[in-house]
C-alpha cells in the first residue's frame, strides 16, 4: 500500500513538473513572439493619408492570448510588454502597461461570451476597445505635449489595427496550433 502511494505521488510530481515546464516554454514563446510582433510593427511601412499607420499588432496578440488562455499572460509579462512598447514609442513609461492591462481585463470579463461567438463579434468588441484606447491616447498626447495632434494621426493607426484584426487573429491561432497542439496546452 505504501509502495503504491509513493508511486502515485511520484507520478503526480512528474506530471506537475512537465506541466510547469510546458508553462515555462509557453511563456518564453509568448514573450519572444510579443517582442517580434512589436518590432514587426516598427518596420517602415507605406503611408495612408500621409500618416504611417503602425498597426498595434501587439494589441491583437494580447486580445487573442487573453481569450484563448488567460493564464498564458502573467501580469509581469504584460508589464514587460508595456515597458518595451513605451521604450520604442517614446511614450511616457507605464502607459503601455495600463492600456494592455485594461485590454486584458476587458477580454477576461467578457471571455465566456466571446468564446461562444464568431469572429465578427470578437472584431466588434475589439474595435470598441481600440476606439476607446486611441481616444485615451489622443488625450494623453495633449497632456504630455501641450497640444492635440492631428486627428488623422490617431484615426489611421486605429483603423489599420482594426483592419488587421481578422488576418492576424487567424495567424496567431494557426501559429499556436502548430507550435502547441491542443493536447499539450493543458
Amino acid at each position: 500500500m505504501v509502495d503504491m502511494g509513493s508511486r502515485e505521488k511520484n507520478f503526480r510530481q512528474i506530471i506537475a513538473r512537465s506541466s510547469e515546464s510546458n508553462r515555462f516554454v509557453m511563456l518564453s514563446y509568448t514573450l519572444i513572439l510579443a517582442v517580434f510582433i512589436i518590432l514587426l510593427s516598427k518596420v517602415p511601412l507605406i503611408q495612408i493619408f500621409n500618416v504611417t499607420p503602425h498597426p498595434s499588432l501587439i494589441s491583437i496578440a494580447i486580445f487573442y492570448w487573453s481569450l484563448s488562455d488567460p493564464e498564458r499572460l502573467s501580469i509581469y509579462s504584460l508589464f514587460f510588454i508595456g515597458l518595451f512598447v513605451d521604450l520604442l514609442l517614446i511614450s511616457p513609461i507605464g502607459i503601455g502597461f495600463i492600456l494592455y492591462l485594461g485590454l486584458h481585463y476587458f477580454v477576461i470579463t467578457q471571455r465566456a461570451t466571446l468564446l461562444n461567438r464568431g469572429l465578427t463579434v470578437k472584431l466588434a468588441f475589439f474595435s470598441l476597445i481600440m476606439f476607446f484606447f486611441y481616444f485615451i491616447v489622443y488625450f494623453l498626447v495633449w497632456r504630455t505635449h501641450g497640444h492635440f495632434p492631428a486627428v488623422k494621426t490617431i484615426i489611421v493607426p486605429c483603423l489599420t489595427t482594426i483592419l488587421c484584426f481578422i488576418p492576424f487573429y487567424r495567424l496567431f491561432e494557426m501559429m499556436d496550433n502548430l507550435v502547441f497542439p491542443s493536447d499539450l496546452r493543458g
Binding site: 518596420v43 511601412l45 504611417t52 514609442l89 517614446i90 511614450s91 494623453l140 504630455t144 494621426t153
Partner: peptide
C-alpha cells in the same frame, strides 16, 4: 526602423 506613433 520607423519609431513613429501617436506620441512621436
Amino acid at each position: 526602423a520607423d519609431l513613429g506613433g501617436p506620441f512621436v
